[in-house]
């Protein structure tokens, strides 16, 4: 656990306040490290470091942003120690202009759907099926890397939109566009690979 409570009274930070952010930090670390134990260690080190340098926290950027900043360093340390190049751990990106206008594939020039969603049969049931998660993972991995990162920071880690913009340097407008495209793509992929397929399978079974 952390240093004994009460050992430091910093005014701004308490152990409980830090611990509140543990789940988000853990999910963030897990996405990068892909290993429960490593992620847990990184979070532990982060909280400890935060506690020890609590006096340097100015409260400007928000506690969670500050903690994620520390966590990124811990993750980078890990890659360095394990002799790997730091390729995946840096989430920030500068070229915000994703010039692919793939929304055009989803809509016609008059703004109407080009194809578009069909009704899904019992999506809740899919959540209970092991095979569905393989498909979900494939669809998520099929997103362009930057888009996948933004999507995962939002939906898997659980950061708020403004935190993600700060984190990645994206403008508001770019953020909305990227998230929207991610959802359009995921939706289409799930429909093609799962919901339309399972309809077909059922028909086969009943035939």
């Amino acid at each position: 656990m952390l240093v004994k409570a009460g050992a430091k009274a910093t005014g701004l930070l308490t152990e409980a306040l830090l611990a509140e952010h543990r789940p988000v930090l853990f999910r963030y670390a897990l996405l990068q490290l892909r290993d429960d134990e490593l992620a847990d260690d990184a979070v532990q080190e982060t909280l400890l470091a935060a506690w020890q340098s609590a006096s340097t926290f100015e409260g400007k950027a928000g506690l969670r942003t500050w903690l994620i900043g520390i966590l990124k360093h811990k993750i980078a340390d890990h890659w360095r120690r394990s002799g790997r190049e730091i390729v995946t751990s840096d989430i920030g990106f500068t070229d915000t202009d994703e010039s692919d206008s793939d929304e055009d594939d989803f809509f016609m020039s008059n703004g109407q759907w080009n194809g578009g969603p069909s009704a899904w049969n019992d999506p809740e049931a899919a959540l209970r099926q092991q095979e569905f998660w393989g498909i979900y993972e494939t669809c998520q991995n099929n997103l362009p890397p930057k888009m996948a990162q933004v999507f995962m920071l939002r939906e898997l880690v659980g950061l708020e939109a403004d935190e993600i913009c700060r984190e990645t340097g994206l403008s508001d407008a770019n953020y909305w566009v990227i998230m929207h495209r991610a959802r359009l793509r995921l939706r289409e992929c799930l429909e093609m690979r799962w919901f339309n397929q399972s309809k077909r399978n059922k028909e086969k079974r009943h035939a």
């Binding site: 853990f26 899904w120 939906e155 939706r187």
Partner: peptide, 21 residues
């Protein structure tokens, strides 16, 4: 359908994270 399905995707993403853990 899009509205319903994007809500579902959010739910699935959360569930996926639990799986991952």
């Amino acid at each position: 359908s899009f509205q319903r399905q994007t809500r579902f995707i959010r739910k699935a993403a959360r569930r996926y994270t639990e799986h991952l853990q």
